[in-house]
Design a protein around this nucleic acid. Structure first.
Lengths: 225, 225
DNA sequence: TCCGACCTTGACGCAACCCTGACGCGCCCG
DNA sequence: CGGGCGCGTCAGGGTTGCGTCAAGGTCGGA
């Protein structure tokens, strides 16, 4: 879940933002001055900060500078000032975006999404699923087992991916066939048998008694951690 | 030097931007429609794009979408529309910032600096990637091996860069082709074969048995440390 | 104008992959 | 008790994809 830190000395704005963000499944913290902002940022490691420039205790631009000494978290500045000098200062201090009050909530949210999206893959947004026998990295398209990489053919990988992405739920054979071989393949269940066998041979400790690539007779297959 | 691509159908705006940017030591290309923008982006690999939404040949939002199919270059949108719906659309399509006309030149430049600053070191984290056989310096665009520089042609370098930036993840052949040769080259997989062979000949200890530039048959290629 | 570096393009051999059919086994139901 | 069904296994053959080589083309510099 994405964590947002909202910094503003006007409780009405904080409240409005918190409500809107929480409604969209963000996790939200807040602060009402610069010192609090820096403290919260260090303690909670937010994924993005919405920062009002007009704070009671210190200059907003200084807050950005202090923050940038140790963090690259995206900062979206909120300000009543329309003067371009202010904007330039804030942006050059390290802010990522600058929105003037009064602002449209949907625009702000869109800019927030943009800021978060940008930062995401830099951290290493790998989706990794682990079992006691092997490890599947969906982003890198890599399978690890006993400390070494397992080579999968394209079809084997597609099949494994379809199962793993289902997240433990049962996947019907028809759906599996369509996902891997295309929409016109609905009945060739022998394909599934062959490739499931190959996957088990490559991934399971005891291929004849699979613990992770499970057959549900008459229905489909399931991936289990 | 930072390379900027300016896209606008109004010659006056293009001229103003080009002059201002060149004066600040940017390298500037320009295009006057969506097709030209995509072509230039593929050919010149700019570090940031300034894109007017009101283009004569296609919707600006579509330009962003098409661009995002193969590139993560920062896009700064320029538009006469103030409506928040437009902004949300553009930002969610993959734009990084949105400035409404008429715009202040110093503000635009500040936003441009912010976009470039963000993108630069955020890409892969490490600027220098080492393997036991060779070293790649992404910032200096240099490859070292056995204590001496390896001469790479521009295309060889683009290809190597695309692979190294992926950081061990598999890169599909289509994506690779688009990143290196441009969006219209989706099927010429023979290019990949030829240039991968050249890279391996220059970089791998045993080119016939590559340890770092790996082929995943039917899927793509992978750089491994 | 010539030369070299680089990019494109086609052809060819080989290995790997995908499909396919056959067979055996266990389970359920008649 | 026997037949049918679904699943796992195996091996062979057609096809695809990859690596390699070489020739032609383009562009810029000497």
């Amino acid at each position: 879940m994405t964590r947002v830190l909202v910094v503003d000395d006007d409780p009405a704005i904080v409240r409005a933002l918190v409500i809107n963000l929480r409604a969209r499944q963000y996790e939200v913290d807040s602060a009402e001055d610069g010192a609090g902002a820096l403290r919260e940022a260090a303690a909670r490691h937010p994924d993005v900060i919405v920062l009002d420039l007009g704070l009671p205790d210190m200059d907003g631009v200084d807050v950005i500078r202090r923050l940038r000494e140790w963090s690259r978290v995206p900062v979206l500045v909120l300000s009543a000032r329309h003067a371009s000098g202010e904007k330039v200062q804030a942006l050059d201090a390290g802010a990522d975006d600058y929105v003037t009050k009064p602002f449209g909530m949907d625009e702000l949210l869109a800019r927030l999404r943009a800021a978060v999206r940008r930062a995401e893959p830099a951290d290493g947004g790998d989706v990794v699923v682990e079992t006691e026998a092997f490890t599947v990295d969906l982003a890198a398209k890599k399978v690890h087992r006993d400390g070494r990489d397992v080579r999968l053919t394209p079809t084997e990988w597609h099949l494994l991916e379809a199962l793993v992405r289902a997240g433990g739920r049962l996947v019907g054979q028809r759906q599996l066939l369509r996902e891997v071989w295309g929409p016109s393949y609905g009945t060739e269940t022998n394909y599934l048998r062959v490739y499931m066998a190959q996957l088990r041979r490559k991934l399971e400790a005891d291929p004849s008694r699979p613990r992770h690539l499970i057959t549900e007779p008459g229905m489909g297959y399931r991936f289990e951690k």
